[in-house]
Simulated scan of single mutants.
Amino acid sequence: MRPKNAFMLILTAFIWGTAFVAQSVGMDYLGPFTFNGVRSFIGGAALLPCIFLLERFNEKNSSAAPVKGSRKELIAGGTLCGLLLFAASSLQQLGIQYTTAGKAGFITAFYIVIVPVLGIFLRKKTGIKVWTAVLIALTGLYFLCITETFTIGKGDVLLFFGALIFSVHILVIDYYSPRVEGVKMACIQFFVCGAASLVPMFALETPKAADMAEGWLPLLYAGVLSCGVAYTLQIIGQKNVNPAIASLILSLESCFSVLAGWIILGETLSVRESVGCVLMFAAIVLAQLPDKKKEEVQYG
């Protein structure tokens, strides 16, 4: 892997991890659906110039291979991803109200273990390594979420179901990304997510321009950096990189969320919760370690 690619992926993980702080701070000014809706529209708008620049680059670079796929597939993929993103990010934003940014980051990162498990229903083999990772992650979630009185916090439940939907979201992206242009599909999904947020935003909340103006910094960070910049960095950084290694680097998002919550928000984790975080990160690493035989065949 080139150092440039590794740097881009680490920067992506850093932006996504610290975005949990922006989401937490943003709740001081806006309701969860308002925050998600506005940040999604900002993210979609931030990708428009990226699409323009990429099209200009492809026009000048004749060697760039065109991406196959019809406009119908692009719209279908973007719409489905947008609806899934709306459901997952809404649960995440609702859940983060009742827990810390670091804890939210680790529970959300559980999708990296869930994805290969859901692959069973798509007739994809799941080896002992993945099942071991699932067992370790469940143990980590127990320490992280279940208190000594054997109760689970409301925010933990919401975040976990959000992680489940994020897992489906990843599988849908995996299906459509080889068929359509990734940045365009991302742009559509952000606008669809923003549009879907409008209904609960006006039905359950009272969005005010003054509140959005006060919360401009977390909104811009979550919208421009987390959605627009980070997604573009991920696409460029993953080029010609082993997907398993790329996913492993991106899973550092959970570590950055804990560090950001500690440094910026002054959040602390108990010893029990810290053990849960360590176990979950170990499970994430184990689930993403490439199989040696496959590596030799593909990259040897």
Score class of each variant (00 low, 15 high):
E214A: 15
I263N: 10
F256V: 10
S226K: 04
L217S: 07
I263K: 10
F202T: 08
C187L: 11
E205D: 09
N240R: 13
M201W: 08
P218G: 01
I236S: 03
C255T: 11
E273R: 04
A246M: 07
P207Y: 09
K239W: 09
Q234G: 07
K184M: 14
A230H: 02
D211W: 09
A195C: 11
I236Y: 12
K184W: 11
S251L: 08
E214F: 00
Y221V: 00
A213N: 07
L219I: 04
E253C: 12
E205F: 05
K239L: 07
K208Y: 13
G215W: 01
M201P: 00
L248V: 07
I245A: 12
L204M: 15
E214G: 06
F190I: 01
L250W: 12
G237K: 03
S274M: 14
S247N: 15
P207A: 10
E267I: 05
K239F: 09
A196N: 07
Y231P: 00
L233P: 03
G276Y: 12
S257E: 11
F190E: 01
P207K: 10
S247P: 02
N242V: 05
C187E: 06
L233V: 02
F190D: 01
L233E: 03
V275R: 11
L233S: 03
L265F: 08
E253G: 12
I264V: 15
V271Y: 10
N240E: 15
G237M: 09
P218R: 01
F256Y: 12
A210S: 15
K208A: 15
P207S: 12
A260Q: 01
V199C: 10
L252V: 11
I235D: 04
G237S: 12
P218C: 03
L225E: 02
M185Q: 05
Q189M: 12
D211R: 06
Q189A: 02
Q238V: 09
I249N: 05
S274Q: 11
G223I: 03
M201V: 02
M212N: 04
V229N: 02
G237C: 09
I235E: 09
S197K: 05
L204E: 11
E267P: 04
V192N: 03
V241W: 04
C193M: 15
S254W: 07
L217M: 13
S274H: 11
C227V: 09
I188H: 02
S251N: 14
A196D: 07
F191A: 08
I188S: 02
F191T: 09
G223C: 03
V275G: 08
A222G: 06
